[in-house]
Design a protein around this nucleic acid. Structure first.
Lengths: 208, 208
DNA sequence: ACCTGAACACCGTTCAAGT
DNA sequence: ACCTGAACACCGTTCAAGT
């Protein structure tokens, strides 16, 4: 009854290190086995196959986004809801591989859970309930996660075929000042703040 | 001087058909060559390599999103801006493979171009200009594309590990009615409408 | 229970050789 | 200019066999 050389946790640890250091595409069963000093096929006994391995990795990475309640200093309901979104975005961006993991497998729902709880609490505290509250929670969640997804996709892209400037060389009908402004790179942090605030204020102001 | 058996366009045509029918992962150089009735290596002469092939596919699919100006029936500036977002989303959803293509290669900017123009026109018509107008354009664009990206990611996912219900079994502090509401599946179309409208109204109402 | 080694059916890509 | 065939260095996965 020897103690086994390998364990599920050991496999996940090394796999996660590979993904963090060299990306999800660099995670191969053979390479992972080499790093573990073991035959490639040994991994299958512990984690099933590559898909299951990636799924397990996803759960581990997204299971601990931590507490998302905004600092007590934020007082207004709008500012508190925006605060949850802000923290959520930062937590996701702090895990660069999380996005790749999510997208490979479409388990976005897993990532949404803790954020959904935190948002629900704030929205309820703001005096909303029922269907209307659920809509606010979902809208904010979608906005934040979608924003981050897109933000990373744009970052990863090589310089776009036609440079961002070039597209606006011929403004053709569009206000030249606006065209020039759109040609310049923008600050994602600022854009996030402005758009999330606008969304929440619009949601809270709605009649229905 | 025989006419060549293959052409760049023929390669792209068949490649696109494969992606549409069986997904981006099913696009292999060998399989594509088989469909074309040619040696796998012949493809390389016409399109370079697989990455270049995918890039070319992306340009083709996203180059013709078509005109995005909303119907003339929409009159208010807010309704017109929302209209552009609505049309953009529908056009993207009508091309299921477009999202995979985009994400594989991060050329999201390409897709944004025509939408940016249409939005800029509407925002300018609404009387905004300069930096403020640019912010509105970018915020709406990010919201719509991010929403669609997330929407598809959720769709593709297998049933989440803990069912959407299960998560809310123990509401623990959260209003039970809200918890129950969040456990139910929602209508993405409705959520899109509500959130985009709220965002735009919030953006147009902002003081700065 | 846990691990190895060989084997199968794939990949993308390069390159000399043919026409 | 355009295409083939062989070859290289990879993949994920299965499975009988070992301990």
């Amino acid at each position: 009854m020897e103690t086994p050389r390998l364990s599920r946790d050991a496999v996940l640890d090394t796999a996660l290190r590979i993904v963090e250091e060299r990306g999800l595409a660099a995670l191969t069963m053979r390479g992972l086995a080499a790093d573990l000093g073991v035959a490639a096929t040994a991994i299958y006994w512990h984690v099933g196959n590559r898909d299951a391995l990636v799924a397990a990795l996803t759960d581990r990475v997204l299971g601990d986004l931590g507490d998302l309640t905004p600092p007590g200093s934020a007082d207004g309901p709008q500012e508190r809801i925006v605060g949850v979104g802000r923290v959520l975005r930062r937590r996701i961006l702090a895990r660069p591989h999380a996005i790749a993991l999510l997208h490979e497998q479409g388990r976005t729902a897993v990532m949404m859970r803790p954020a959904q709880r935190a948002l629900a609490a704030e929205v309820a505290a703001a005096g909303l309930g029922g269907e209307r509250a659920a809509t606010v929670v979902r809208a904010v969640l979608h906005h934040v996660v979608g924003f981050v997804l897109l933000e990373r996709a744009v970052q990863r892209g090589p310089e776009p075929h036609p440079g961002p400037d070039e597209v606006w060389r011929d403004p053709d009908g569009v206000d030249p000042a606006l065209a020039h402004e759109l040609g310049r790179p923008h600050d994602p942090d600022a854009l996030f703040e402005v758009s999330l605030s606008a969304l929440v204020s619009g949601l809270l102001a709605a009649d229905t």
